[in-house]
Nucleic acid binder design. Structure first.
Lengths: 211, 211
DNA sequence: CCTTTCAGTGAACATCTGTACACCGACAAC
DNA sequence: GTTGTCGGTGTACAGATGTTCACTGAAAGG
């Protein structure tokens, strides 16, 4: 039921196309509200398939959600990769990171919005999956920080604490950017987080781990 | 239809009691999931009234949500009041604030959970109401900070930036506390935010606002 | 005492919900 | 070329949904 207009596809290709359409339709439909407020029939209608066809791809909205968690965190890891790259470049590390954040949030509004929402409002299994992924990100960032800072004066524990704080600020900023469409307000948000990170960096440079 | 068992009530009292029951039932029902996934009939059943009686108190789930925003932020303002009080007491300001936070989050799990969820996943009007309230809290905190810090070396803008960062960390910590029930994990969360605030304070003490 | 007010009732409605079932028809495998 | 696999279809059903309407009965007000 998906209009093709192109060359004939194999069965596997076609199935993949429908699966993609379901994922996209879901991201669009739950853009405001939440997965828990979304019905299988709404998704099917948006995709252009009959409700029962949904079961050929997922056996519930919940497992659909888990698939979306995975692909949303692919986007988030893309962001982290860019931040890491900008950190080595000539640019200021704070500005570089914020630029990357803004850029990625704009490009994948759907994915970042999905994480922000379902992190607190999704089905239990989805919430848990997101928390696991975020913790992975924090650990990953902590090892990166270990390379950048004087690793001899920072304990592993403190590195993770700092990494967790960075991720918290990052997530909160993403949420704020997502909740506005006015460019001047976004500029305000960016300016604020810029200063916040600078304040934090001042503390970081002075910090010496105890014990 | 609310079993009383006590002395007869006036009509106004009785209406208030039902209203309270609706508010409580809603907090309980949307504790996992979200307002947007909640039906009027579920609420009515939980309260023990017929669906149409709901309309005597609210004309939609959405306006019910707005009422819950108000009372949830009463709880949050209670927390702020305690933090302010602890700040003057003998206790360390960081530890005192965290203790107050943990205490209030435990006592009003429902209200803090409601804010955390509906802030990102609620109906648009509810989300907007919450954002307005949070901004009020940030402003309020900023004026408090102005009294505590050397106000001559901090611009009003920087004070608000700092206040916003504090609120971000506070909200994130509340969310983490809410998402766990294991005491040892909560202790971990508290220890982490304790260190984070200390790192931040190091930066704050060094900070000098630019022109 | 008589009348008004009004929180709560109960039946009815059109619509939406998840899921079961039998079916189709094109691709794939042999 | 026959057969099997498997996305997708269509029908069907029992239950939930928001909202309407006319109603009841007790408290409130004159």
């Amino acid at each position: 039921m998906i209009e093709t207009g192109t060359e004939p596809e194999s069965r596997a290709e076609r199935k993949l196309r429908t699966r993609r359409a379901i994922l996209d339709a879901t991201l669009e439909l739950c853009a405001d509200s939440s997965l828990t407020a979304l019905s299988l029939r709404q998704v099917a209608k948006q995709v252009g398939i009959v409700p029962t066809a949904f079961y050929r791809h997922f056996d519930s909205i919940e497992s659909l959600g888990l698939a979306l968690v995975e692909e949303s965190f692919d986007s988030l890891r893309d962001l982290f990769r860019d931040v890491r790259r900008n950190a080595r470049a000539d640019q200021d590390i704070v500005d570089g990171s914020i630029d990357a954040l803004v850029d990625h949030v704009h490009r994948r509004r759907d994915h970042f919005g999905f994480i922000a929402r379902e992190r607190v409002a999704g089905p239990r299994s989805v919430r848990e999956a997101i928390h696991r992924e975020i913790e992975l990100c924090e650990r990953e960032l902590a090892t990166d920080l270990a390379l950048m800072t004087g690793t001899d004066i920072w304990t592993a524990k403190d590195l993770h604490v700092l990494s967790s704080l960075f991720v918290t600020v990052l997530v909160a900023t993403a949420e704020q950017i997502l909740s506005t469409t006015r460019p001047e307000q976004e500029a305000q948000i960016v300016a604020t987080v810029r200063t916040q990170l600078r304040m934090l960096l001042v503390g970081v440079y002075q910090w010496r781990s105890e014990g």
